[in-house]
């Protein structure tokens, strides 16, 4: 898979390189803003994706995207920009080919997520429930915006596709708290979980009033595997930091 990166500033190209080095097996080609050279390369090579700066002295990234789409109808475009540009500023055919925006200075995680989504059409979430609980989206760690929203997601995974009601969630996550205090905290956790899933573009939870339901599609979870096969992992410590976990797993 070939990916091109176009930016007029060396430092930007350098940042990109340091983020991707050794982490994906794509073939990267870096260009300064020389449109004829880039188009020439696009004629001769099959390019999967282009990461383009927008505001460059010799060429405009959006115009360049248009030219590249003509040459490579399957190409995916990501704009790396310092400007306040979003999907609504683009028109067809560029908007249809744009898979994301990276705003400078960007998170390397955001870049890696985009790369994964370019490599594979469907993002996959992996949940590690034995040992310390963590989630990965195409092998990149998911950063939850609060501890409780992470814990809530762990509980949802434990529910294994069954709906989780607000009362159940509160009684397990905040067992010793009065309801009028725990309800706002529950809603906070729900809000933050929703934000995190939106950020990683993996909408696997159906949010309803006082009820959450997990859609298991494209999620792999070691706990679910254990439930199906009965085979324990090497270190069978289930969700060790959460008090409620004992209810769901005993050796």
């Amino acid at each position: 898979m070939k990916i091109i990166i176009v930016d007029d500033e060396m430092s930007a190209l350098h940042t990109f390189l340091s983020d991707v080095i050794g982490r994906t097996d794509a073939d990267y080609k870096f260009f300064k803003d020389d449109a004829p050279e880039i188009c020439d390369y696009a004629v001769k090579n099959n390019i999967a994706a282009a990461f383009l700066d927008i505001n460059m002295p010799k060429t405009n990234g959006i115009e360049l995207a248009g030219k590249l789409i003509e040459l490579q109808p399957e190409i995916k475009i990501v704009f790396i920009t310092g400007l306040d540009v979003s999907e609504k500023d683009l028109r067809e055919p560029v908007s249809g080919h744009t898979v994301g925006f990276l705003y400078k200075p960007y998170d390397s995680e955001a870049l890696l997520r985009l790369l994964s989504s370019i490599e594979r059409e469907t993002p996959k979430l992996t949940a590690k429930m034995f040992g310390t609980f963590d989630c990965f989206i195409n092998n990149n760690l998911v950063r939850f915006s609060s501890k409780k929203s992470k814990e809530l997601f762990a509980l949802l995974l434990t529910y294994n596709g069954k709906s989780l009601s607000m009362t159940d969630a509160i009684s397990q996550l905040w067992p010793d708290m009065e309801t009028d205090k725990s309800k706002p905290l529950y809603r906070d956790a729900v809000w933050r979980l929703r934000k995190t899933l939106k950020e990683i573009n993996f909408n696997c939870v159906e949010f309803e009033r006082a009820k959450l339901t997990l859609n298991k599609l494209n999620i792999s979870c070691d706990y679910w595997e254990y439930l199906e096969t009965g085979q324990l992992p090497a270190k069978p410590v289930f969700l060790k930091s959460y008090n409620w976990s004992q209810e769901y797993f005993t050796e």
Binding site: K183, P184, L185, R187, D188, W191, R192
Partner: peptide, 8 residues
């Protein structure tokens, strides 16, 4: 400090 989003 904690920021709580109690969003209905």
């Amino acid at each position: 400090f904690n920021l709580i989003f109690d969003i209905d």
